[in-house]
Nucleic acid binder design. Structure first.
Length: 613
RNA sequence: CAGGGCGUAGCUCAGCUUGGUAGAGCACCUGCUUUGGGAGCAGGAUGUCGCAGGUUCGAAUCCUGUCGCCCUGACCA
């Protein structure tokens, strides 16, 4: 155990020495059964194995074992961040609401932002990320281009009042995150944003590789963080809640929200000899479900055009409504619509009241609605929906009514050619089987994942909003160009468990395991056995390994079950059986069975060999 | 936010329909036995039945409200 000096002393550390902890001196509250609220493997196992305990929805205690694993992950991150030129610092968890108003993110985050009022009535937020805080700091501290570039990072608790926390550590309301921020005067070249972005990309790959995770880096949407380019690092895992799409030919991979779709054929023209069916209005009362309506109309969801109404983000002048028409069942992306309409800001789903006031029969909107609505309205049609030879069913722009036999050419006529009125563009999410955007003939495949890292090229969004300028060489004031880079530390720990476990419990990758070696002392009362356990533990500690010594007076079965549950990579069993054979039993957690007897003087090397895998 | 479910011992849950002394298994404590995969016997301790109100002679049980937690969806670094 650690010895504590009573006077100030300093000893330079020249070699890494591990630790030895005794089970009886710490708390590892294992559970025979998983609490009912846990449904995902990592949540159940972290709870059962005594790593975490829930304090409130999405808020957890990190017990000693979890904290050790988190520190291992944090250490890996620190080493890689430092190698990429970062400096670690620590910002406060709370900050004044004002600075989030400066950038408009208080509104963007909305209810997801944890807010509180202090005794003086000041509005305060618990930080969901720290772009504002660090920008506020640096706009005062950095005034010259000579101080750039800079990369700063911290490992801190983050707070997001998620509408629905779930799956234990995978989606919490308080979680541990490494967030890094880089600051530049230019995008390209030495010291530019791209250089740091690429360095971070490599650092992230190193971090997740060292953590023993199988991951894919994918192109992603920037979301409310804002910015241009963005990549997510997804741990490949069936139980992940995110879906990514991948092109098997080109290696292109992207988040579903971002994923582009390859060329698709479309035409409003039905072709020669095509005879459109008569447009018929059908009364469809009390049919909220689209399947029911489709059935009633004698078609399927995929045979119906849906039109969702978007309104421009408040404060933008581009004005006018946008109707988006893919077929029913497809997920419409307002971000894709915004790039299709080239409206700078992201349009959002229209407020039902305002849309109704403007003349939209919400729930029964057809692409024709745009004609009768007050104000400008652009209809964006997905290529799949822009098929003239299909007899579409759609809304009748009248409550409780739909039409069948909708035909683009007949219904819209000349207007189809008017680009300011009708536009064909990709506005739906990509799905499995869609053509690849990078390799002709190839189709996209899906893969589940857990997002553990996300990097962004922010540009000047924050520096402009908050007035972070520096003088450049030519004495011109310039906005600082930023990047930001996050890793969910607590989520990464959960992802390790999610990826690596069996029925018996967790199987930690050696690099993030709370301890490397778990010594099971069968007879803690036997002085000879206990002495041997101490001797081996010390030897391993000196070799740089962390050791957990189960010295509890428990039955063997209990100890073995617990050892499997908490999942240290190597288990040493000290008991009469192996000692008679002249050694101790050594077993890798990933192997089944009893392991093998290893002579005492070979234990250290055997452990190291197992850990090096 | 919509839909669904659950709150009873540390954990898993029964009891509620049909109101009448608060239950089981595991865990915990004591003793004996046992000692290589969650032991056995005997004894013991453990509760604001989420909370508040109502109905009733009497409420874990019925009614109303409220809070918390979980799941599916919407949403989301």
């Amino acid at each position: 155990m650690t010895e504590h000096a009573t006077v100030a002393s300093f000893t330079p550390v020249t070699t890494h020495v591990g630790t030895v902890d005794r089970w009886s001196k710490t708390v590892i509250p294992t559970l025979r059964e998983a609490p009912a609220e846990a449904t995902t493997p990592s949540h159940q196992l972290l709870l059962r194995a005594g790593y975490i305990r829930q304090v409130a929805a999405g808020v957890y205690d990190y017990l000693p074992l979890a904290w050790r694993a988190l520190r291992k992950i944090s250490q890996i991150i620190r080493e890689e961040m430092d190698a990429a030129g970062g400096s670690e610092m620590l910002m406060p968890a709370m900050a004044p609401l004002e600075i989030f108003d400066e950038t408009g993110r208080a509104a963007d985050y909305g209810d997801d932002l944890f807010q509180l009022t202090d005794r003086h009535g000041r509005a305060t937020v618990l930080g969901p990320t720290h772009e504002e805080v660090i920008t506020d700091f640096l706009r005062h501290a950095v005034t010259s281009y000579r101080q750039l570039p800079l990369v700063l990072y911290q490992i801190q608790s983050k707070f997001r009042d998620e509408p629905r926390p779930r799956a234990g550590l995978l989606r919490g309301r308080e979680f541990i995150m490494k967030d890094a921020y880089s600051f530049h005067l230019k995008v390209e070249g030495e010291g530019g944003l791209n250089e740091s972005y690429d360095a971070m990309y490599r650092a992230y790959s190193n971090v997740f590789t060292r953590c023993g995770l199988d991951f894919t880096a994918v192109e992603a949407e920037a979301g409310p963080i804002g910015g241009s380019a963005s990549h997510e690092f997804m741990v490949n895992c069936e139980t992940g809640e995110d879906t990514i799409l991948r092109c098997p030919e080109s290696g292109y991979a992207a988040n579903v929200e971002k994923c582009e779709i390859g060329e698709r054929a479309w035409s409003f023209d039905g072709g020669t000899g095509f005879q459109p069916v008569t447009l018929t209005k059908v009364h469809t009362p009390n049919m909220p479900g689209i399947e029911g309506v489709a059935q009633h109309l004698g078609t399927t969801a995929a045979g119906m055009l849906k039109t969702i109404v978007l309104e421009p983000a408040p404060g933008t002048e581009s004005g006018g409504w946008t109707g988006c028409s893919p077929w029913y069942g497809a997920t419409t992306r307002s971000t894709k619509a915004s790039s299709a309409t080239r409206s700078g800001s992201r349009p959002r789903l229209a407020d039902e009241k305002r849309a109704k006031a403007a003349g939209f029969a919400i729930g029964y909107v057809s692409p024709l609605a745009s004609k009768s609505v007050s104000g400008r309205c652009l209809v964006v049609v997905d290529p799949d929906a822009a098929q003239g030879s299909t007899a579409w069913a759609t809304g009748a722009d009248e409550a409780d009514h739909h039409v069948t036999g909708f035909n683009w050419t007949r219904e819209l006529g000349e207007s189809l050619a008017d680009q300011s009125y009708v536009k064909v563009a990709e506005i739906r999410n990509a799905v499995v089987g869609d053509p690849s955007p990078r390799a002709p003939g190839a189709s996209l495949v899906a893969q589940r994942g857990i997002e553990t890292g996300h990097i962004f090229k922010l540009g000047c969004k924050y520096s402009d909003a908050m007035g972070f300028h520096v003088m450049d060489e030519s004495q011109k004031r310039q906005s600082v160009i930023m990047g930001c880079y996050g890793i969910g530390v607590s989520r990464t720990m959960a992802a390790c468990v999610e990826m690596s476990h069996d029925e018996g419990g967790i199987i930690w990758p050696a690099a993030v395991a709370p301890y490397h070696v778990h010594i099971v002392l069968m007879k803690p009362d036997d002085a000879e056995h206990a002495a041997l356990a101490d001797r081996l533990a010390t030897e391993l500690r000196v070799a740089g390994l962390d050791v957990l010594l189960d010295d509890r007076k428990e039955r063997p079965g209990v100890k073995f079950k617990d050892a499997d549950l908490i999942g240290m990579p190597v288990r040493l069993t000290i008991g009469a059986k192996a000692l008679e054979a002249g050694g101790v039993e050594c077993k890798a957690r990933s192997e089944s069975g009893h392991g093998e007897v290893v002579p005492l003087d070979a234990v250290r090397d055997r452990c190291l060999a197992i850990l090096q895998g």
